[in-house]
């Protein structure tokens, strides 16, 4: 085969161009840490990379949601703890009131019960951020619009109604929220209830417990004929029996709250475990993703050195080939 100057120079140019391009590619890979400089570098991996990115983003989304939910669970736990403490105090008050030595002090007990109801309402109105945690899905002030005789935009409110035979004090606790549970997405197609509904803690309609406490207050504060009890006035046997019945109901309510607290604790633990699992999975998925899209620095460096060596020798050989011809020896 005839080898011409053009053959030599074209081949040399082509070789040098290819080697320069490869060196530039390896240098960029090392500098950026990215194995894929363009999609066509590894078309079979593109789908997997997009999929890993998607999975990681989704897991992070669930982890973030769980973090927020765990913070809310802490608020609810604190509220339940306060409710539980208040209920214990009220139950103790009830038991103490049944003591013969305290029968003449029921008007004083009545005031303590009223304070207890107020403390319970405060705990029930616990907030997390801008939401009332025990108000179901009607949980912001914007929708808790008071209607007379209500005066606040709180979900639980003690209102004063016209006294009646059955309710001589006219006190009533109103619940403006609802008992709809709230859910969050914790995985693909998996949801977790994040709220505890008021009816779960306070009984039917979210107010049964309060009605019972108002009943207890009325029993302490009023005589059987509906007149206000003064200090020293003794309760009737019927009132004593009624208080004993209410104390029993208080115990049941406290047990309900304890169940709810336990349920919440289990849920919180489950969420924390899910979050931890997600954190581990994210690390694992990132590792897989890294294997596909990140540069193997050692391999890239060795390849770069090879290309540099090849480039150097191509230059040397090319320079020698192109420099000498018969013309150089003609004198």
């Amino acid at each position: 085969m005839r080898v011409t100057l053009d053959t030599l120079s074209s081949k040399l140019q082509s070789t040098l161009t290819n080697l320069t391009a490869r060196q530039a590619q390896q240098q960029t890979r090392i500098a950026t840490g990215q194995r894929l400089l363009q999609l066509s570098d590894a078309p079979t991996d593109v789908s997997a990379i997009v999929s890993y990115r998607s999975t990681i983003a989704r897991m992070q989304r669930y982890a973030t949601t769980l973090d927020g939910a765990l913070a809310e669970q802490t608020t609810v736990e604190n509220a339940l703890s306060q409710i539980s403490t208040s209920l214990d105090s009220l139950r103790t008050l009830g038991i103490d009131a049944l003591n013969l030595a305290n029968h003449d002090k029921w008007s004083v007990f009545a005031q303590h019960i009223l304070s207890g109801i107020r403390a319970l309402i405060d705990a029930a109105n616990a907030t997390h951020g801008d939401i009332y945690v025990l108000a179901g899905t009607r949980n912001t002030a914007s929708v808790l619009i008071p209607t007379s005789p209500e005066t606040t935009s709180l979900p639980f409110e003690l209102v004063q109604l016209t006294p009646s035979g059955t309710n001589p004090s006219g006190l009533e606790v109103r619940f403006k929220g609802n008992n709809e549970p709230r859910y969050i997405q914790t995985g693909d197609g998996a949801t977790e209830q994040v709220s505890i509904t008021a009816d779960r803690i306070f009984g039917a309609g979210g107010t049964a417990l309060f009605s019972m406490l108002v009943d207890l207050y009325n029993t302490f504060a009023y005589n059987p004929d509906g007149s206000p009890r003064t200090n020293g006035q003794l309760p009737s046997q019927q009132q004593l029996d009624h208080v004993a019945f209410l104390v029993k109901q208080l115990s049941d309510a406290a047990t309900q709250v304890n169940y709810a607290t336990a349920e919440l604790g289990i849920r919180t633990e489950r969420m924390a475990r899910q979050r931890d699992q997600l954190t581990e999975d994210i690390t694992r998925q990132r590792e897989f993703l890294s294997r596909l899209q990140d540069t193997d620095i050692a391999a890239a460096t060795i390849q770069l050195q090879r290309d540099q060596l090849a480039y150097e020798y191509s230059l040397k050989v090319g320079a020698r080939l192109l420099n000498i011809s018969l013309i150089d020896f003609l004198r």
């Binding site: 400089l37 927020g68 997405q185």
Partner: peptide
């Protein structure tokens, strides 16, 4: 592509925000 400011990133951010709003819809 391949990079960080892609349609996929924008989609992920949209769904991240939707998930956050789903957890705090009144915020």
């Amino acid at each position: 592509e391949p990079g960080e400011q892609t349609l996929q990133t924008a989609l992920q951010r949209f769904f991240d925000a939707a998930a956050q709003l789903s957890a705090q819809p009144s915020n």
